[in-house]
Write a protein that binds this DNA or RNA. Sequence first.
DNA 1: CTGATTTCCGTAAGGTATACGAGAATTGCA
DNA 2: TGCAATTCTCGTATACCTTACGGAAATCAG
Lengths: 267, 267
Amino acid sequence: MTERRSGEGQPERTLALLWRNHRKSTADKEPTVLRGRGAGRRPSLDVNGVVAAAIRLADTQGLAAASMGGVAKELDVGTMTLYTYVPSKEELLDLMVDQVLGERELPGPGAPRPHDWREQVEIYSDQTRAMFLRHPWLSQVSTIRPPVGPSMLAGREYLLSALLEIGLTPRGTNLAALAITTYVDSAAGLEAESELIEQSTGQTNDAWWYERNDLWETYFDVDQHPAMTAIWNANGYQGTTRDAATESYRYGLDRLLDGIQATALES
Amino acid sequence: MTERRSGEGQPERTLALLWRNHRKSTADKEPTVLRGRGAGRRPSLDVNGVVAAAIRLADTQGLAAASMGGVAKELDVGTMTLYTYVPSKEELLDLMVDQVLGERELPGPGAPRPHDWREQVEIYSDQTRAMFLRHPWLSQVSTIRPPVGPSMLAGREYLLSALLEIGLTPRGTNLAALAITTYVDSAAGLEAESELIEQSTGQTNDAWWYERNDLWETYFDVDQHPAMTAIWNANGYQGTTRDAATESYRYGLDRLLDGIQATALES
DNA sequence: CTGATTTCCGTAAGGTATACGAGAATTGCA
DNA sequence: TGCAATTCTCGTATACCTTACGGAAATCAG
């Protein structure tokens, strides 16, 4: 299931956390409400440390291990201490996600990059896929209302900049970018989830299917499934589940890019 | 987040439940271990009733409401009574999923269907999308290790049968089907999740973005995001979030099918 | 040394799944 | 009729989760 982050209380506070208060260099009328100044007990932690600990736990022991109690224990403080640094579990998740989104090495505006737009998209795909495999718990986090942080914006900017040069309409460029992120994020997420389940259950997907051999012997009716049977008999299901996932990922992405390229050539 | 169903104990029992013991008409050596016969207290419920109640709760009050306690209360029995009918929450989820997968009206083998394979795929897409919108909690359930039930198999059979006729290799047909289900299931799931969040939070996605207006004023640096800025200035983001989702869904599916069609024409 | 300020965190409330075992209901056989 | 075998029912207990509340501890300015 996908972890839901339902209603964040104060958008301003969440934004300030995500951007670590790096406001753009305008007037700066606000006295920069940062911690540390003036009176009061010294903090023993900081936001980055809390986020890093939570990511470490999620990476090594699964997202469930990154509970408030778990993170607190990892940092050797009381559970409630975390709430000094982070308003709630939801915001902590947002911070974790934007943090790992930032691990992708995507050329910024002006930085050198391949000439071919498809190669540029491939960088996005490779980096995103690697990110998911490093942090498989990402596949369990809903991104409908994503963390509106610097790294999430940088990712969208990069993909859009790659698509701009193929000369679609502005709206078309946006649609193409949405289609690509939908496919890449979902397919990479599925791959990551697959490995995650193999590790957390200690059972490969192939072994899982083998355990259900009963299906074919006892329940599967060949007459009701001629297409599956035909493909099976023609060895269409050859190879391991894992290889199929990798191959299918590339296949789908290439076909999607083919289709986008074709609409660009028409105009 | 995505609900995880980690390790089901006995595959045989789960299969028997999913298929409601409708084994294919072979020898039938087993004395058909169905309930109801012989001595013992009469059951007050049945599996279908439990599954139906769980789906009803999830539809109306979210997946979290379909807890064991919640379903039991809905049926006016003690929580532990449910475990007579279903081995665990995991299996109940499997049963819920296969049940709603079966709501899709997909022509079976031999049944009349459109001539054009793309129209056939469109039926799959429309029916699946409608299913997700009727049961948005589906987007929270992981399908890496899906319920191996009749309705899940029927869906895969239908899609494969539609793709068979375009004359790809067996392996290519399988890859194309995987790519399509990945895209359709994910994109439809995202749409459904979007509506689910709008309903459960009582806040439209547009309102959610508006609440984060601070982003553009305080943090967003135009120089770092020239592509986004260009598309914004050219009205590339016009329309509501919801319209964009629907339009993007169609756009991505059409481009993917374009790409698949092109590889078929080559050979 | 005092008062203001900030961090730290124990406790408690209300949620989840499910192992265990006792008790109730029903049938068939002696 | 009595009784054993069988099956369903479900209260209790355990071990987690998030977080509201409020008081104690630490630190600085004056």
